Simulated assay, not measured.
Amino acid sequence: MNVPEIFISCDWGTSNFRLHLVDTNSLNVLAEHKTDMGIKKRFQDFKMQNEVSQEVFFAEYLKEQISALNYAKGNNLVVVASGMLSSSIGMRELPYAKMPIAFSGKDLISTSIHRDNGPKIILVSGVRTETDVMRGEEIQAMGLANHLPKEDRGILLLPGTHSKHITFEKGRFEDFTTYMTGELFEIISKTSILAASLNQVDWKSSFQPAFLEGVKKGISNQQMASLFAIRASSLISDTAPEQNYFFLSGLLIGGELANLKDKNETVYLAASGIYNVLYELALLSFLPKKRVVCFETQIIEKALLIGQRKILESYG
């Protein structure tokens, strides 16, 4: 097919649904629409009925939500959908592409779905190694690849609920490792015995010493010995729960980053908001500044769209 002037970016995650109407050339977002109908919830609704197939059930919701973009040519648009829509609880399960994959994304597995009176949907697979899998982050990585050195090697760091460390070399993503840093922090801070010793507050520079002390212990592989110390310090030393909160954050982030201390590659950090602040602080606490590259917010915001445009162009 010819590359259209406009396409729809579909980012359908576990908990949220997002559509963006995108100008293909400039990648300017012309309209957007979001709901809380994540893949997990939609799949649960599918299991509660027996009238239509799984593919039709998801396609109907997608078509309905596209109408909310209020674009007159909606029926002629192409949707590029990455992430969980190609999982077993999505529209149609696609097998994982196997690492390594080129920066261009040509090694990814994709398929085109075009149902009657509906948009054409380009569905994109995730990727795997022998021991790990991901769906969605690989498209963001493909977008960020435009800002990575093509003839060098390094590590792309994507913090989040399940942080990804993706190694690359000479125009290919070679391997990756997933760290459950964000999810562990959520569980420990809200459901463990430590919850009573923690208090979530906005970041202030006064919390930096506590955070970096946590990072130091995490990098030194002292997480297990340091966790209950949070509870003890609140009882014995009356340590403020706000300080404990950022100590715990540093402890887990330090544990995640510990493997980078013995590597020589440059680390490329793609994080926004508080993630950017904390991960940059942690990285610079043990790596020289020249080996840490932090992407600007506008680069990160465009990464998914750039990656999806690469997929779209492969159908041109």
Rank of each mutant, 00 (worst) to 15 (best):
K263C: 13
K41N: 10
S237E: 15
V215C: 03
A258L: 12
L227Q: 04
S53L: 02
N50Y: 08
L108Y: 11
G160R: 00
Q140K: 12
I219D: 02
V267M: 05
I39M: 07
K190M: 10
N276E: 15
S233F: 01
M134C: 04
S272D: 13
F103N: 06
G74I: 12
G307D: 05
T111W: 01
Y96M: 03
E265C: 09
L304W: 03
L251G: 07
M1L: 05
L260P: 05
T111R: 00
L148A: 08
L251R: 08
D262H: 12
G74R: 09
S82A: 15
G214P: 01
E32K: 10
G316K: 13
Q298S: 13
G255T: 15
E130K: 12
N146A: 13
M99C: 10
D36V: 04
L269S: 03
E174G: 05
L248V: 11
G13D: 06
P241T: 09
N146E: 15
L144C: 14
G273T: 14
E174V: 13
M99S: 12
R291Q: 13
T297P: 00
Q54L: 02
T35H: 00
I253Q: 00
Y245G: 04
K261E: 14
F103R: 00
G316L: 11
F246N: 08
L284C: 05
K98S: 12
S234W: 03
L148P: 07
S249V: 06
I6C: 04
D175L: 00
K289F: 02
K34C: 13
I236C: 04
E296A: 08
A196F: 09
T239A: 07
G105F: 01
K73Q: 14
V22M: 07
V52G: 00
K73W: 06
Q243W: 00
I299Q: 14
S189R: 09
T167D: 11
T178I: 03
G273P: 07
A232M: 14
L281N: 08
N50P: 00
H33S: 05
T266S: 12
I274G: 00
N221F: 11
S205M: 11
S272T: 15
S314L: 14
T131S: 15
G254L: 04
S53M: 01
V124Q: 02
K302I: 05
G273Q: 07
H114Q: 12
S220C: 01
Y268K: 07
S125E: 03
K98G: 01
T178W: 07
F46R: 02
D107L: 02
S249D: 06
V277Y: 08
E93I: 13
H147L: 12
A102W: 01
K73N: 15
I300R: 01
N276G: 15
I166D: 02
L148D: 02
V78S: 10
Q200R: 15
S285F: 05
Q222V: 04
T131K: 15
S26D: 05
P241R: 11
Q243N: 14
V293K: 03
G83M: 12
R135T: 13
E64M: 10
A210S: 14
S15F: 06
E169N: 11
Y315C: 09
D152M: 04
F176K: 04
D107P: 04
I155Y: 06
E242C: 11
C294E: 06
V29H: 02
I193E: 09
Y279C: 04
V277F: 06
